[in-house]
Amino acid sequence: MFRRLSDPEKKVRMTFEGQDITAQEGESVAAALLAAGITHLRQTPVSGHPRAPYCMMGACFDCLVNIDGVSNLQACVTPVREGMSVHSQVAEKDLLHEDG
């Protein structure tokens, strides 16, 4: 669905569902995922339908993902960081972190 005009110059390595992804420093998680060909970022909690980034400016909340164990983060306003582990947010499992 998307391609990069040029290869990332300052590379950042991260994963999505365990798959290695190379991102460009300074870009958002959503941009990195779309550039890597990932188009389904979450399932809605109501019907379970897949969703992807829609507005890219923090308004629509359709790009919610789990990053390093923290759920409900907006991929389009979260900058990529080296070693980041991103997971798709599936309806019922995105919830509570275990400290209780």
């Binding site: 919830l95 509570l96 209780g100």
Partner: peptide, 9 residues
């Protein structure tokens, strides 16, 4: 009271 709710938004 419910520590697990800390992770919620």
């Amino acid at each position: 009271l419910f520590p697990s709710v800390r992770g919620a938004r």
